[in-house]
Design a protein around this nucleic acid. Structure first.
Lengths: 159, 159
DNA sequence: TATATAGTGGATATTATAGGTCTATAATAA
DNA sequence: TTATTATAGACCTATAATATCCACTATATA
């Protein structure tokens, strides 16, 4: 049961949403964030550090310090956040020996080509990955906020 | 670093490819399979068992026994195989408390709606999941085999 | 400048799961 | 019956997610 985003990604996205939503007051401390998300301060700190190292948020130490978005919410995509937290390894890696199987398969067909000896299973999986990534690139922190706004308006109009 | 298909999925897909490719001789034993993939017999057995329990392959014990596809290769999708091996849990689960954050966000906007109290991060993620699944449904064991054939032809024509 | 405040980084603990081995058992063909 | 082959389950190990704690550094302001 490998294929699931970690809780850290959950926390990161919700924390960013919180920062984006309340950009009125410049800095949001870890206390406020951890209270809003229901996570310990120490653990959330780690996650925020990663986001800072990747230039997604800015951190200010000292009295009245805290975090704020380093960029406009429109420019922070789901994909980026996920890759910072989960790492950038690919969705699928082919075991070496298995890819040998494909070389044999190809030779069996009519030989010659396939000099890249690329695994065909991997090729499908890479396509899936690109599909997924494209979708995650199109969704940003801001687009979620817009969604909230749309829903609210909808409710008002129905009244 | 959570988001990666397991080796088991790799093995399962390659094993199925092997079965589909050499359907001339009815049964392929675990020995041949494990040799082709470079995995131990005992470990691959477990994977094959799962595939059998889900009706993807048939198994015959005893002398000259082995495995064969239970259905035509066109009807075995990547998605199905992945779900058998990886499980059917969702790509993303929202921590309870975080979803509370969204209720607040929504109320803040204009209240009322959002009675589903559904997490908006999760909604994006579910969309991503559906996107991914659609792609994986469109690719089958047979479609990979076809790809091999196409490549071979291409090489011949170029000659 | 002193000090309380707030983020950073390292060490550590816990638990779950992937990945893998081995053995006893059941089914089947010769 | 015997050799062969799949099945089920117990078992092991290494790694990663999740989480906590503490010492350290940076900064705003009294």
């Amino acid at each position: 049961m490998n294929i699931q985003f970690s809780k850290s990604t959950d926390y990161a996205l919700h924390a960013l949403l919180h920062l984006a939503h309340s950009k009125l007051h410049q800095n949001i401390g870890i206390k406020e964030l951890s209270a809003a998300l229901g996570v310990s301060e120490s653990y959330l700190s780690k996650i925020m550090s990663k986001l800072r190292q990747d230039g997604i948020v800015r951190a200010v130490p000292g009295v009245n310090g805290g975090y704020e978005l380093a960029r406009p919410a429109e420019q922070i995509t789901f994909l980026e956040v996920i890759q910072v937290i989960e790492g950038r390894q690919q969705l699928f890696e082919c075991s070496n020996l298995s890819s040998q199987q494909h070389r044999l398969l190809a030779e069996d067909g009519a030989g010659e080509s396939q000099r890249k000896s690329e695994c065909l299973v991997k090729r499908v999986m890479d396509g899936a990955e690109q599909h997924l990534y494209q979708y995650l690139r199109e969704h940003t922190i801001q687009s979620v906020l817009d969604e909230v706004f749309k829903q609210s308006n909808h409710a008002v109009n129905k009244k």
